[in-house]
């Protein structure tokens, strides 16, 4: 009996091994290396001369105004993008949940931005939002509104990126919401109809509560993805104007690969990783408390 168990677990592990090796090689190992480098003065061009510097990098981080600014920016981004993106995803899902003519067309149209590369999307919006002759400003001018410096004003740039990101990402969450909506048994709605509930009451008391597991999943994935913001600012604003769209991941990339300060960049990833961990932990705590 025992023999069979051992053989079975060997078989199980050998089936798992490709995944485990990949995970270890490309996820676990880099994480451990980053933690180690965070305590060294690793300069990209002199890999052999790295020295242990203790907490020096972490002390420098606390005093780094650009890193702190980038944390502020990404926090603002997350706080804005989550309601906008999830709200519009839910709205779109509700719209296409009903059987209508041309539903497939709308499904594809809403999902299309997800399929496109983020770089393409960013370049596209860069043209649309051009202050001098971009389509959006031309339209605004016709309506009598002054041209807006969407991406070139330090006060507007981050919100423009919020909008573009939500526009790009909402299609994906829409599909997940749609699956969640279609999992709600129609018998529940029929029962509420008998009780005389109107559409709004249906939505508040049936649809939303039953969508909760889906919403939690979407919240967590969107949150983590939002923290990793880099491509849109990289392409559209290069972190400017005046660092107003600089994000931690972009700053880490810049420090590591153009300034070649791998040690310092690693320390920032460690700090940033811990911060994301804390936020995710709080979020899952909060959503679990709601359950009970």
């Amino acid at each position: 009996m025992k023999n069979i168990n051992v053989r079975e677990s060997i078989a199980a592990y050998s089936f798992l091994s490709p995944a485990l090796i990949l995970l270890g090689l490309f996820l676990l190992l880099p994480v451990l290396m980053a933690i180690y480098y965070a305590f060294t003065d690793y300069y990209l061009l002199t890999p052999d001369n790295r020295q242990f510097v203790g907490l020096e990098n972490f002390i420098a981080i606390i005093k780094d105004p650009i890193f702190l600014q980038s944390l502020k920016n990404v926090a603002l981004f997350v706080v804005c993008v989550i309601p906008v993106q999830i709200g519009s995803a839910l709205g779109l899902a509700l719209l296409i949940n009903k059987q209508r003519r041309g539903n497939l067309f709308f499904k594809v149209a809403f999902f299309a931005p997800v399929v496109l590369s983020l770089v393409v999307i960013s370049v596209l919006w860069l043209y649309l939002l051009n202050p001098s002759e971009g389509l959006i400003n031309v339209i605004l001018e016709r309506v009598g509104i002054n041209p807006q410096p969407f991406l070139t004003s330090p006060d507007q740039a981050i919100y423009t990126i919020v909008f573009v990101s939500a526009w790009q990402g909402a299609g994906y969450q829409m599909l997940i919401f749609l699956a969640g909506l279609q999992n709600i048994p129609s018998s529940v709605y029929e029962a509420s109809k008998m009780d005389g509930a109107n559409k709004w009451q249906n939505f508040i008391h049936i649809t939303l509560p039953l969508l909760k597991p889906t919403s939690i999943l979407i919240m967590i994935t969107t949150l983590i993805a939002a923290f990793k913001l880099i491509i849109q600012p990289m392409v559209m604003t290069q972190g400017g104007p005046m660092n107003s769209t600089m994000t931690p991941v972009y700053y880490i990339y810049q420090t590591g690969f153009s300034d070649r300060l791998i040690g310092y960049a690693s320390a920032m990833t460690v700090v940033f990783g811990i911060l994301i961990g804390i936020v995710t932990f709080i979020q899952s705590k909060v959503s679990r408390e709601d359950d009970s």
């Binding site: 104007p241 005046m242 153009s258 300034d259 070649r260």
Partner: peptide, 16 residues
């Protein structure tokens, strides 16, 4: 790289 980026930011900031 750092000096150049800071110079670039200076020029960019000056235009505001």
């Amino acid at each position: 790289p750092q000096v150049s980026r800071t110079f670039q930011q200076t020029i960019s900031n000056v235009t505001y």
